[in-house]
Every structure is written in C-alpha cells, then in structure tokens.
Design a protein around this nucleic acid. Structure first.
Lengths: 242, 242
DNA sequence: ATTCTCAGGTGCCTA
DNA sequence: TAGGCACTTGAGAAT
C-alpha cells in the first residue's frame, strides 16, 4: 500500500503502535505508542501523537519513503538529503489501520489580516500615524532586511516604520533600530524610526525610548475580505535630538 | 462519529472535498478541494492539504469540536476562546473516508542536539572557546532574556556567550549585544560577548565585529544518546577597547 | 498572565 | 542558493 501510494502520488495513512527513530539535523527516539503516520503525495512525512498540534517527527516535501515488512512488523522509512542527510524510521509492531487515497487540491488559501495587509492599509493613510507624513516606499530593501514603510515627515526627515500585527517585543525594537541606523549611515541626515503595533511589551518600550525611537499603537478589525485599521494612538515624544 | 470521537477522546479522521473558513487572530478562506481533517483526543484540530508539512488551518489543544449534517453535506466546526475567540468551519460536499480510533500514547520524545544540550557541552569545557575561561552561570537571567553561558576570562572580564545550534543571523548578534550592554550597565567593568555557532552569515559577522563582539565557530556531531562538540575555531580579535 | 527564547521550526520572497 | 523575516507561529520556562 505504501509503495503504491508513493509511486502514484496518493495520500497514505497508517495508524498503529510504533517506535520512532530520527537522525539528521538533530536526533530523537520515541518509544512504543500509538501514532498516526501521514504520507502526502509530495513526499511530506508526518508522525503525529495523540496530542499537540505539531508532528512529533517529520520530513518535508520531497522525502523518499520506503516500506518493508515481515510477519509481525512493518517498517516505514523516510529520508532526504536536504537541508542535510536525514532519516526517520518508524517500526510498527501493530497496524490498526492503513489505506491510501487520491487527493487532488490545487487551491490556495486567502489569508486576511497579515502584516503585509496591515502595512498596506497604513500606507494608504499615513496621517493616521502623524499628520504630514508622505509615503515614499513600501518594503524598502536595505542591505540587511527591509523596512515595512518608508516615509518623509513634515520637517523633511526620513521615517522608517515597522509594523507588527501582534505584540512587539525586544526583537521588533532591535530590528527597527538596525534599519534606522543603516538609513542614517547611507542617507545621512535625520532619520526617525516608528514602531506600529497593537501592543508592546514594557521592556521593549523602555528600550525603544532609550534608543530614541517612537511607538504608535493601533487596533484593527478583521472584516471580510480585508482588515480595517480601527484606531491609532501616538506615543508622543519630544524629539530634541533631531 | 465525530461526536462520539470528541466525547470519548478518540482520534477522528475525515477525508473528503471541503471548503474551509477561519476567523480569529486572522481570517482565511479556502475554496473547495480534497483535504484531510484530523481531530485529536485533546481537541487539536488540523486541516491538511495534499502538500506541505504545515496544516493549512488549525486549532490548538482544547478546541471545542462540533459536527452537523444534512442529506448532502457535513459541517465540522472547531472553536476556542483563547488566545482569542477563534472558529474554523469545514464544509464537506463529499466524504471519502471517516473513522475514529482509540489512541493511547503517553511517551515523550527524547531529543538530542538541542541548543540547551550544546550549551551544556560547551560549559563543561570552556577552554574549547578560549583558555582561562571560568564558568560562572548557565542560563543567567537578565531583565531582558537570559544569557546562555556567563563566564570570566583570564583577565577578569565578564564574558557573555550566546550559543546557536545552526546559522547565526542578524538577530543572534543583536540578541547578544543586548545582553552585553545590560551586563555592562548592571555590573560595570569590562564585559565581552562571544557568539558560538556552526555558521554565521556575512552580514551578521560584519555587524558583530562592528559592535566589538567576538565569534567562535564550532562543529558538533550527533551521536547517541547525545551530541559531541567536534571542533572549535576562534575568530581572534584585538580587544583594544577593553 | 506576561514575556522571553528555541524550534530538527516552516514557508515565503528577493537579491 | 543564501539570507532575512513573518507566522492564526507553537511550546516551554521563568518571573
């Protein structure tokens, strides 16, 4: 069944008691228990336990799957050579269910409320952040990463805006700081940095202020087929250093 | 079947043609196609397409699953209220397979080669990084995050060591930089920062050097039941600023 | 409950 | 291919 499934790009399901061994980027051992093994038409190989979202062992698209069996056991293996040589070995002592299915699905998901979408909404009306802001560029690529929004303020300063769809933490602040520093070095002149998110952690806010960056809180509502910026609240700072 | 499975903490599998709608932290729509729906005993709800590792729609442990049907359709819903109110709706126009299974598995995976393990190995012999290093603390907690290893060098300087099990990028450098800056502020005196990883990106190395931090490359081998540090190669720097 | 970091992260996109 | 980053990130640990 497994051989037929992999040969004909069908979905294979195996449920039963098994041990699992993995060696590759890391290594793992999982002693006997009941698990669900999923082999997708594209070679994706998943071993699921009875709880949690993530597969406990896995192999990405393109894995080579082989199966062998004796009188009282079934062994299924999955291996690939990229990103490194990896191998999963599943040894079933008992199979409760095994079958394969054709599975046709070329549909792509439409996701609303992504950071990219929010960034686009903000770009359409930068006055929400501050009056007098003129949009310059979206996703402006620097040598290290890309600024979500690049704008110019009423005083002529460059403004780098980083958007986060959820909590902004320390990483968001250092990320923005990197962009601002590179822009100052490359373009010279005054460059401001504004972090926009629905929430920021206390540590992140402290660091942000210490670095001379600014924060702008916003809320959004996920409607259909899009998201809406509901409100903005600017954390005002005295910008003496500019 | 679904009701029985959720009531008795059994695994349920449904395979068929369906549309999927999601609304919660974000929102999504997926038009008709053949998918595999997995409902785990703990409430985990997964919708898998025919390719890729990740579930295209999902709900974590604790989701409430309900099912309803008419003559020509089956609707399965999953919802939860944390972290926010969320809901997935799967509408089947055709069911190819549906069944539930008991699934007992309390085994925990043993993983080898984690960052924590590597960090522990390095701690056991810091001379691998540099002669004269004395271990002070593992996972030393600062106000913002925790340093992997804290040590003192031959000259009496504090050394913050950040370990990455694979590629170190810009984020790793800013992370280490944060720790070093906080240690300098809190403890005063000379504080060095060393990033240890098997690989570092060119940008990250440039930034690291510009910030006055150091890099130490290492390789490791995943044996069984553990990992071994194979070799280390120190990127020497003149530390005039200390 | 908040915040932080790791993950065999995965997946996406761009130079 | 390499690198930078978002993700309905998930999951765990510490405060």
């Amino acid at each position: 069944m497994v051989r037929d499934a992999t040969a004909n790009a069908r979905l294979a399901l195996i449920l039963g008691a098994c041990k699992v061994k993995y060696e590759g980027r890391a290594a793992s051992k999982l002693s006997e228990g009941e698990r669900l093994v999923i082999i997708k038409p594209d070679g994706t190989f998943l071993v699921h336990q009875s709880s949690k979202m993530a597969a406990i062992n896995y192999q990405g698209p393109g894995a080579a799957v082989t199966a062998s069996h004796g009188k009282n056991f079934l062994r299924v293996e999955a291996s690939r050579s990229k990103p490194v040589r990896e191998r999963i070995e599943v040894d079933f002592s008992r199979v409760d269910y095994a079958a394969s299915f054709a599975m046709k699905d070329d549909k792509k998901i439409h996701l609303f409320g992504s950071e990219r979408e929010l960034s686009g909404l903000l770009l359409q009306d930068l006055s929400l952040i501050e009056p007098g802001l003129t949009p310059l560029k979206r996703e402006s690529v620097l040598s290290k990463g890309a600024v979500d929004i690049l704008a110019r303020d009423a005083a002529g300063s460059l403004v780098a805006i980083e958007v986060k769809r959820r909590d902004a933490g320390l990483a968001a602040v250092t990320q923005l700081n990197r962009y601002v520093k590179e822009l100052r070095k490359r373009k010279g002149g005054a460059v401001r940095g504004v972090l926009c998110s629905p929430h920021i952690t206390a540590n992140a806010l402290a660091m942000l202020e210490q670095e001379g960056l600014e924060y702008c809180k916003f809320e959004y509502e996920i409607g259909n087929p899009s998201a809406k910026i509901k409100g903005l609240e600017k954390k005002q700072r005295i910008l003496g250093e500019y």
